[in-house]
Design a protein around this nucleic acid. Structure first.
Lengths: 330, 330
DNA sequence: CCCCTTATACTCATGTGTAGTATAAGTGAC
DNA sequence: GTCACTTATACTACACATGAGTATAAGGGG
């Protein structure tokens, strides 16, 4: 293993019908013959791609027909044991993950079975819009208690308590919407996501038949829909970053049409942040904060009083230093 | 150019005597024979380094004897024209940059001429502690005016005005401490940093003698001390990230000893953020915010009334969601 | 016409940021 | 030893943002 290969992974996010969606493709998973969800990815073309970002744009266009607007680099993943030897082959695989926000769910020309999926299908404990998700009390909390119990030393136990409290907001601080990655990694360690089980099996006991059965079992027992390799970790990174950015950068406007009603905008923010917002305050924040301006035109399909259509006020970038929609606790 | 090489760059930051310092080494620069400042860097060992972060720790230890504490990934730089062909050779060089915060300036065992340098020697327009830096009015503002004037179309002119106003806080918003990278990139485009000139020369007219002279000239005319390749851009990224993080994460405590006076802590924050803070409010923020607790012990070398020594209150991580020192305008 | 839905406009308490002022407790100059 | 100076610590005031609740406006459907 003396070579390095650079892959580019894309987390492409849109919001439709109050559901945060992520673009996935079908790939063969850990167990041979079992296709699983994956993020679109592809290798960097060292000669053709002038920048990493252009590389991402290029093959997303090629693979799905989608022209990306807002794109930002997320993180570069390079752990050695990230991919099992069967995938990595001889090279050390480094993956630079990118986050893209697109306006709406356009039909994708999927050569590789591309489709939009509810992001909370993969991370069901992240959606608090209808109250605390049941899976937390039913599955996660008991597993965490056990995990804390079995710590050898008392200082290790204290560390675990602290970690659990911070990640899942059990302490005074409450639920921190942007700690998505911390929560996923904790669940991985607890063995509550299928990837943790299959990863262990593939690396420690690579017997084919056992793997296939175990992978199925892990999926059934794990929380949320699994993804290929470490793609769910990348998705968690992306959701956490998006949530964090919503609060202090006007990124929501990348996800909605040119004009929109304030309630529509609120629903989009709620879908991504996974929590409900106070309507009147949300409006005040946007209007008094100068982030939007009315167009004078109205939208009548609301089922009630027609709502004014608003648009993003670009000038706010000059006026305020951190113009965002300020999530609770931010 | 079909191969990919992964390099790891480290921005190692400490604060001593109210000066933010960055660890540099001496390397041959663009003009042959002219050693310049560089960030410590080295290639990933695909077999030996289990993670990228461990790779960074390993060769920082090897090259400087320094054991890093807090380390985080900054950004991965992969533009094709980032490095001139003479450096890149046949491979496409991708650099993952890491930020490390260390407690104090320890003497470094420099095999490669490692030394601590004032970070503001490289980015002098970023230090507003003694008021607006003269270089802004003397050099930057006129250059920006010219740059705006020469825009062809009026919408291009408007874009330039907006960019300048946002980056340098000329508009209503004022100076945004964390926009370090935006400012550096604007100055690069304006040709006000030496690297912009030498980059152009090396790529467009690679005649050796002209390059050496021109590099010297560019250094003399450019603002701030230059660095090798794109290392100053990486430093700007690091400073921006650090400043942003100060406000909502307790990272200052990575830079000070176990116990400290509140004024000491304030000076460290001021050094990094480049702005002066209100003393009474800074104290209240830390004490009432629960970030620190008194030790009951006092420090008498202050020249005035002895100050109490404080320590970081770790419990705050459980109590608050974004515990930081809240820079002005944040 | 009434009811339901949604939009929009108020009020009010609380918290946070910014700032100014006063007092306490050391050091060094004379 | 007193005085000037330095720094630490405490207290108060005010603008403004945030979080939450209430009232009124304007559409549609039975």
């Amino acid at each position: 293993m003396n070579e390095v290969a650079l892959w580019l992974d894309a987390v492409i996010v849109a919001v439709t019908d109050e559901v945060p969606r992520v673009l996935t493709v079908r790939r063969e998973g850990t167990a041979p013959g079992l296709p699983e969800d994956a993020l679109p990815y592809g290798p960097l073309d060292p000669e053709g791609d002038r920048t990493l970002e252009l590389g991402v744009r290029r093959w997303v266009r090629e693979q799905t027909g989608l022209h990306l607007g807002y794109v930002e680099q997320l993180y570069t993943f390079g752990d050695q044991d990230r991919y099992p030897p069967s995938v990595a082959g001889e090279a050390r695989i480094i993956s630079s993950a990118y986050l893209a926000l697109v306006r709406e769910v356009v039909p994708v020309a999927g050569s590789a079975g591309a489709r939009w999926r509810d992001a909370y299908a993969f991370l069901p404990w992240e959606d608090w819009r209808d109250g605390r998700p049941e899976v937390i009390d039913d599955r996660i909390a008991p597993a965490m208690s056990g995990w804390i119990e079995v710590a050898d030393a008392s200082d290790e136990r204290a560390r675990r308590v602290e970690r659990a409290e911070i990640a899942f907001g059990l302490g005074q601080a409450g639920w921190a919407v942007e700690r998505v990655l911390e929560r996923y990694e904790l669940l991985y360690e607890l063995g509550l996501v299928a990837e943790a089980t299959t990863d262990k099996l593939v690396r420690i006991e690579p017997r084919e038949i056992a793997v296939e059965d175990a992978a199925r079992l892990a999926c059934e027992r794990g929380i949320g829909r699994p993804m290929v390799l470490d793609h769910r970790r990348i998705l968690a990174t992306a959701l956490g970053r998006t949530r964090g950015k919503l609060a202090y950068r006007p990124v929501v406007f990348e996800l909605v049409p040119e004009t929109f009603t304030l309630l529509h905008l609120q629903r989009v923010v709620e879908a991504l942040s996974g929590v409900r917002l106070h309507k009147a305050n949300f409006r005040r924040l946007l209007e008094r904060g100068g982030l939007v301006e009315g167009t004078g035109r109205f939208h009548a399909d609301t089922g009630g009083r027609p709502a004014e259509r608003f648009r993003f006020r670009r000038e706010v970038l000059r006026e305020r230093r951190a113009p965002g929609v300020g999530l609770p606790g931010g």
